[in-house]
Computed example of a mutant assay.
Amino acid sequence: MLYQVVESNKNAFNAGSKATADITSIAEKMNFKPLYVHHIEAKNNIFSKIVNQIRYFFEWSQLYKEVEDNSVILLQHPFRNRQCNREKNILKLKERKNVKVISLIHDIEELRNSVYNEHNRSEFEFMVRVADQFIVHNSKMKEWLKDKGVGESKIVILEIFDYLSDSPINEKNFANNIIIAGNLDLSKSAYLGEIQNVSNLNFDLYGVNYKNNASPNIAYHGAFKPEELSEQFTSGFGLVWDGTSIDTCDGNTGNYLRYNNPHKLSLYISSGVPVVIWKEAALATFVKEKGIGLCVNSLTECAELISNMSKDQYDEICSRVNEESIKLRSGFYSKRALEEALRRIQNI
């Protein structure tokens, strides 16, 4: 029997919730039965937090009873909230019911290093302890896990996150426009404070926490739900960038691109948009091999490459992007990784 633990948070409205929801949907179509653990955003008082923990205690106890012997259970890591009775019951499932665990990793906080704390350290160590198979973003993350002592035979590479969608793909127009979608908070992505200094590029911004940066080459279009975004993109390139500078990706968030598969890249490809990505990012290899965008050292270099590009060259890139879009919209990469993890577990 196949199961998956699903953290249910109805208040979630961000790319992260889209990523986990898509994995849940893809796994369910593969007959992973959802087992729900509900979270309600606690008000800033002790009573609300206690109520949540009581709910966790009973839901994890019920979850343990429901799972059959010799089953496989999919966990999406990391769990974002402390949950009373979770670790105890996962260990009981492994020890008493011979349950195998697939851990699909969304983030590794030690690598991101912006909110790494005792909870995140403990969460990672427990994941390594219980997982029989890991699904990781890419080869760079795989090598990092191997350095942490995880055996190569336990690691499956996802390659890229899928992005389920049935929204129509608009035909893209060639233009020197750069799309930036996501959290526009300058404290998270300080490079946004410098984009007005990039000559020969126009920037189309979509997302939350935008602070007005009056400049003729910047247009803010508002915040949209994930399923609504693709219809907004009509031209140009989607940017995968982070850090403090337009000249390189630096700092904790910039360095994380060396290991992470940013979900916004999947958003762009699913929407039929060619991408621009930092040349040292882990996913730059994927972009180059698939021929679906530009790999650059700086945004100034990006402007130069686009200025020397023809419409025919842009249309050829769009054609290859659309081929990949079909895969991402259907869950191709997640399904392939889950199938490989199951095959390996069956051979244990």
Rank of each mutant, 00 (worst) to 15 (best):
E143G: 14
F332H: 10
G151W: 15
R320E: 13
T285C: 15
F32Q: 07
M1Q: 08
L265W: 03
K140G: 12
V5S: 04
P78I: 01
V276N: 05
S103V: 10
S17Y: 10
R121S: 15
T234D: 12
V296N: 01
G293F: 03
G254W: 14
S230C: 04
H77M: 15
S310H: 04
I195Q: 03
G254A: 00
N260S: 04
E323A: 10
G236W: 03
Q62P: 15
F58E: 07
Q83C: 12
E323S: 05
S17L: 09
D250Q: 06
Q133C: 00
H263A: 09
A15T: 07
P262H: 00
L93N: 09
A175N: 06
Y220D: 09
K10Q: 11
N297V: 09
H106A: 06
N14S: 09
Y116F: 08
L265E: 12
V51W: 13
A214C: 11
D242Q: 01
K43H: 09
Q313Y: 11
T253Q: 13
R329Y: 02
I179T: 08
E95N: 14
L267P: 00
S235W: 14
G272M: 11
P226V: 13
L294S: 00
E289F: 02
E324M: 14
G149I: 04
N260M: 05
S71V: 05
F233L: 05
G149C: 08
R86C: 07
S310M: 05
A21E: 08
E228I: 06
E316Y: 15
Y36H: 15
L305Q: 01
N98Q: 14
L328W: 00
G251F: 14
N197Q: 10
G238L: 02
I73P: 03
N31H: 15
F32N: 08
K290E: 11
S187T: 07
E159F: 02
I50K: 10
S153R: 14
N173D: 12
V275L: 01
V101K: 05
A42T: 04
K154A: 09
R86A: 13
N183G: 11
G182R: 00
H106D: 11
N308H: 07
A181Q: 07
F286H: 05
V99I: 05
G193I: 08
T248I: 12
K188Y: 15
L267Y: 02
K225Y: 14
N120Q: 15
S103M: 07
E280L: 08
W60G: 10
L257F: 01
Y64A: 08
Y191W: 09
K172T: 02
H38R: 12
I135R: 10
I26N: 01
Y64S: 06
A190T: 12
E316W: 12
T24A: 13
I23C: 01
I179E: 05
D185E: 10
N9I: 04
I317M: 09
K33R: 09
E59F: 00
K335V: 06
N197W: 08
W278L: 08
K311N: 14
F237M: 07
A21M: 10
E340Q: 05
E41L: 10
W241C: 02
Y56S: 08
A341I: 04
Y3A: 06
P226N: 03
L267C: 07
A282Q: 03
K29R: 09
